[in-house]
Design a protein around this nucleic acid. Structure first.
Lengths: 225, 225
DNA sequence: AACTGACCAATTTGGTACTCGGGTCAGTAT
DNA sequence: ATACTGACCCGAGTACCAAATTGGTCAGTT
């Protein structure tokens, strides 16, 4: 319970003022605990706020899992990337993380133990994702490190171009659709996928997501009611 | 003559030490002229170095024009983007500009009169590029602002991902090939293009490029004597 | 055993003196 | 007259120090 309250306070202050301007004492008072208590759960300010980002990512992942269980077609790359893009842009912290907004996160993006773990988990999950898709004939290429890179590169631009002037004229969904079009053509076979393949792939990915979700949750401090 | 020498000195110092660490006086002495002379050609330090970047861009564009005249297939999006990617990564200044290396360029990227002109010219050229391609049946979509955005987004990621750790394992050409694959599938028709269409499109684009090249050259100070 | 907040060291901040470098222009050279 | 120069000006940035703040600890309280 207490750890979650501390994370709540930290998340609120982080989104409002940014990493640099928030003190650990403020977080503690915001959560109604003493400063020392914070250090019973996390070894440093940096790790505390990294945990905030991790929890945010876990929630996003959980939402995506739900979406995929509701509609298995969400497992397809163009749908998955579209959904992820919109979800990230809708969350202040995730957006700051992906667009590299250092005004909000300071140097939090670079190097924290849990940050590195998160990056590794994400990479591994992406690899598994591509393997699953390929296993059900939903990919137009062989999986591998290069394909992972190619997908990352194709998607990354959408986030990086976020701030630039004349891209603001388009709505968020228009940009999401653009990303979906690019991803579908560049990574999926031309012909429509077989419904059974989609269903099975979604089921496989649900397991992968659950696994990563468990891993992320485990990295957050254990609740001690 | 003199303006070119000043640009030479400025370019050399810029690539070696970065915008912040180079003084106008150094540039002047490097070019063998007085500091005041520099201000006969450019109104400010910022515009001087913006001109360095503009000249670099003009050279790159000129090279690309040559490449396209040698092999008209270079007009195709996947070839054009691949070539551009490699050319930019090969030039320290262009690379710094596109990967957002503020250590080298400082705040030079943001807002300088000629910088804005360059961005506008680039946008317009991209639009014309897409129109030309479409006119010869080499595009799978209708041109327009959204398609321009989609292409930018698809390409931008390759530059933005440059610094990140585990992308270094791949060679530059492997990354360029990855970009080419994505672009070809996402923007070009599935069937191979007709040689005549390619030849004609290349001829059209040669004109567009020459026009932009002339514009860029005109923005550089007029040579006297 | 869980938690706290006074305490310490280290970093950050605020203020000040001073250097340095962008930009100007009276003057020199041609 | 024209092309060019470099000494000069002044504001932005740097260096520096004292004061304030804050990340992190731990003896002590609940």
């Amino acid at each position: 319970m207490k750890a979650a309250h501390i994370l709540d306070a930290a998340e609120d202050l982080l989104t409002r003022y940014g990493y640099r301007r928030v003190t650990v004492d403020e977080v503690a008072r915001g959560a109604g605990v003493g400063k020392g208590t914070v250090y019973l759960y996390w070894p440093s300010k940096r790790e505390l706020f990294a945990a905030v980002l991790t929890r945010d990512a876990a929630r996003l992942l959980s939402d995506q899992l739900t979406a995929m269980l509701t509609d298995p077609a969400e497992v397809l790359p163009h749908r998955s990337m579209r959904w992820t893009y919109l979800a990230i842009m809708d969350r202040p912290l995730a957006k700051a993380l992906y667009t590299g907004d250092s005004a909000l996160l300071g140097d939090l993006t670079t190097a924290s133990r849990s940050g590195a773990l998160f990056a590794a988990g994400k990479r591994e999950t992406t690899d598994r994702y591509l393997s699953v898709l390929h296993g059900h004939g939903l990919l137009s290429d062989e999986p591998g490190a290069l394909l992972s890179y190619r997908l990352s590169a194709a998607v990354a631009g959408s986030f990086h171009l976020d701030g630039t002037p004349d891209t603001a004229e388009f709505g968020l969904t228009a940009k999401a659709d653009a990303l979906a079009t690019t991803v579908r053509r560049a990574f999926e076979p031309a012909e429509d996928p077989a419904p059974a393949a989609v269903r099975d792939a979604a089921a496989d990915m649900a397991d992968v997501y659950r696994q990563w979700l468990a891993e992320l949750t485990r990295s957050l401090p254990r609740e001690q009611s």
